[in-house]
């Protein structure tokens, strides 16, 4: 088995605005099962970070436990990383985000890690609007422990064991909308044209961004009876719109698609341009997003694309009025009030 990727890349491989090759954003060779959807999501993260020209050392990737949470080894080898406890990725991410607001935070979790053991953590990180992209690699099963159903498995869906799921499933995107998330999207590991712009937009969003990515488990849950197989998702995928992410410096030159289109400006000046927008859906209307998700679900379809965005929702740092400088750069003089300041405070109590 190969444990190392050859050092050579395509001789015409481009460099990004800050002089890096895509190779500089790669990680170790994956040890997940061959054909795992998670590897495609890793590849999408690599390409998104490369194209956004984020210096690799200014990114932190944080994960929990599970197949999904192994993936940070397979991308962004030159970035900070923390492989935490099962379901506790949001806590560790909270600590990191509070300590340093200058980094880009990518949280990676799975459906087990998020929708079961980590559900409480997930709910609160959404509420607080923490500055991070939360990527769920959602395969509907516990791949690492031989494919038991997870909380996102749909009723009636069955994996390799052949026993249909009895319990109703948790829709993480719907839940995030309920909890007040300002950026909610769903995508499919097998559709990078959709996934990469969404990751870029999520990274650029100032606040919490959830991307629920359906990611087939080839070993345990890619059966004909599963609703999270490559074939099922491809056959039942509907999308809210075709999203294109336009970074700050580039002008919108994307070709005009038929159907209604819309441009959403992000806080940093970058834009998301949406075309072929689905009927009755407005990306800025939370209710229309919830409706669209439920409608698709009733029809047995999987709604993907950008579901909801509120670029103006105040993130945690704004709500808490946190200090701009990273905590580790704060010196005694920054932390201990001066004699005059102390006097002033004391005066207030006299």
């Amino acid at each position: 088995m190969s444990y190392k990727r050859p050092a050579f890349r395509h001789p015409d491989a481009a460099i990004n605005e800050i002089g890096f090759h895509q190779k500089d954003y790669e990680g170790a060779l994956s040890t997940l099962c061959a054909g795992c959807g998670h590897d495609s999501i890793s590849a999408a993260i690599i390409q998104a970070c490369f194209e956004l020209s984020i210096p690799p050392h200014r990114i932190a990737k944080i994960s929990g436990i599970g197949c999904s949470s192994k993936t940070p080894t397979y991308f962004l080898a030159n970035s900070h990383g923390f492989n935490s406890v099962h379901g506790r990725m949001p806590s560790v991410a909270t600590g990191a985000v509070m300590a340093n607001k200058d980094l880009t935070y990518i949280g990676v979790s799975g459906d087990g890690d998020t929708a079961s053991i980590g559900m409480g953590q997930f709910a609160h990180v959404v509420r607080r609007n923490l500055n991070m992209v939360y990527i769920v690699m959602n395969n509907g099963c516990y791949g690492l422990t031989k494919g038991q159903d997870s909380a996102t498995a749909d009723v009636g869906s069955s994996g390799k064991a052949g026993v249909p799921t009895m319990f109703s499933s948790i829709d993480l995107a719907g839940l995030a909308l309920e909890l007040g998330a300002g950026f909610v999207a769903r995508s499919f590991s097998g559709d990078k044209n959709q996934l990469i712009p969404l990751i870029k937009a999520g990274i650029s969003h100032d606040g919490f961004a959830l991307i629920d990515v359906l990611s087939p488990c080839v070993t345990f849950n890619n059966t004909k009876s599963s609703t999270k197989s490559y074939t099922y998702v491809r056959d039942h995928m509907e999308s809210t719109s075709i999203a294109d992410f336009v970074p700050v410096k580039k002008e919108i030159t994307a070709s005009v698609q038929p159907g209604e289109s819309k441009t959403i400006e992000m806080h940093d000046g970058s834009k998301i341009s949406l075309s072929s927008i689905a009927e009755g859906w407005d990306p800025k209307d939370r209710l229309s997003a919830i409706n669209a998700i439920h409608k698709a679900s009733l029809e047995g379809e999987v709604l993907t694309g950008l579901l909801y965005i509120d670029a103006a929702q105040p993130p945690v740092h704004k709500l808490l009025n946190t200090v701009d400088a990273p905590l580790n750069s704060l010196q005694e003089r920054d932390l201990v009030p001066s004699q005059e300041a102390l006097e002033e405070i004391n005066m207030g109590f006299r």
Binding site: S30, S189, P216, Y230, T231
Partner: peptide, 15 residues
Amino acid sequence: CIECDACVDVCPTSC
């Protein structure tokens, strides 16, 4: 082929 993209993702020289 099930079109999972694994080969596309892993190919070092993007062939």
